[in-house]
């Protein structure tokens, strides 16, 4: 029984970690849907956003004010990106856009460190990284309160965005642009506004992801690389699918935790770092469009 309970604990911890991967992956999916570009700057956006948030908190702003101010800052970053980077490059190849996002990443990383410095900051969300007593007493489960909060927040944010896409005019416009930007333009859907909305949403998602990661691991440059964990998530889930980002994140989270616990000791531990990529390679070999990736609909 305790054996099973321990397994359950591991899976649950994996799923909770997975929702955070999902959240980061969602930032990528948003931009990929609107512009078919893999946004390499997403990691830098996570780092930039949470560093700005901590910076504002250090100035003595209350939590809520700092959050709203940072969210607005990320909208401004989205606006500048659209104006200064994407618009001049409109109609260029996807490779050009990809290179531009890599450049944007360096700019954001440099800017963040120039303004707020390079030392690791602590971010205290007021939620401890320790097991919830109630769960320990009643079910014998050791699950961190921070993990549970992160999981719930990530799930709520993802759910909200999914509903917005399904039921709002802007969401319809985004899905139309994702399918065929030329046809969307031909019926008067303004691509610029859609891009602006998408980059703003991706910026806010980056902020929330950065706060959740930062509270666990400290606000530091390594967040940029952590965000790249979203790559295997996207390969498994599919680059253009929101449900794919969610399920892909959960699969990665659960796989890496169970492998770490049960197989890790034979490899001397630390397989969390690379196991997701191995899984991703298997997907690339056998199901390259991912679990939920939109198959290209082609009538002959």
């Amino acid at each position: 029984m305790t054996e099973f309970l321990f397994f359950f604990e591991v899976v649950l911890a994996g799923m909770l970690a997975g929702t955070m991967y999902s959240l980061v992956a969602l930032g990528f999916v948003l931009i990929y849907k609107a512009s078919s570009t893999f946004n390499f700057a997403q990691g830098a956006m996570v780092f930039f956003a949470v560093l700005a948030f901590v910076g504002l908190m250090e100035l003595g702003l209350p939590f809520g004010v700092a959050f709203v101010a940072t969210a607005l800052l990320m909208v401004a970053v989205g606006y500048c990106t659209e104006r200064l980077v994407l618009e001049p490059l409109m109609n260029q190849s996807h490779d050009t856009m990809l290179m531009a996002t890599i450049g944007l990443g360096f700019v954001l990383e440099g800017l963040a460190q120039a303004v707020w410095g390079v030392e690791v900051r602590r971010l205290d969300l007021g939620i401890g990284d320790f097991p919830i007593p109630w769960l320990v007493d009643n079910l014998g489960l050791f699950v961190s309160a921070l993990d549970v909060t992160a999981g719930v927040v990530a799930a709520a944010l993802i759910g909200t965005l999914a509903l917005l896409f399904k039921y709002t005019k802007m969401g319809l416009g985004l899905r139309a642009v994702a399918d065929d930007p030329g046809a969307a333009a031909s019926i008067g859907i303004p691509l610029k506004n859609i891009m602006l909305a998408v980059w703003s949403a991706a910026g806010i998602v980056a902020l929330v992801a950065g706060m959740l990661w930062g509270a666990r691991a400290g606000v530091q440059f390594a967040l940029v690389d952590l965000a790249l964990k979203a790559l295997p998530v996207l390969i498994i889930g599919g680059f253009s699918s929101i449900p794919g980002a969610i399920v892909g994140g959960l699969i990665i989270g659960v796989t890496e935790k169970t492998l770490e616990v049960y197989i890790g000791p034979y490899f001397g531990g630390g397989i969390e770092g690379w196991a997701p990529y191995v899984l991703a390679i298997f997907f690339l070999l056998y199901r390259p469009e991912g679990l939920f990736g939109e198959k290209i609909i082609r009538r002959v």
């Binding site: 416009g173 899905r175 065929d180 969307a184 031909s186 019926i187 008067g188 859907i189 609909i297």
Partner: peptide
């Protein structure tokens, strides 16, 4: 489009992953 001129592009160019009705509603954007 706002001035009242709309082009139907060559090759139909429907939004393949949207439903027929969503496609039509998108036209009123």
């Amino acid at each position: 489009v706002r001035l009242g001129m709309v082009q139907v592009l060559e090759g139909r160019r429907c939004f393949g992953h949207l439903t027929v009705e969503e496609n039509i509603i998108a036209g009123a954007y």
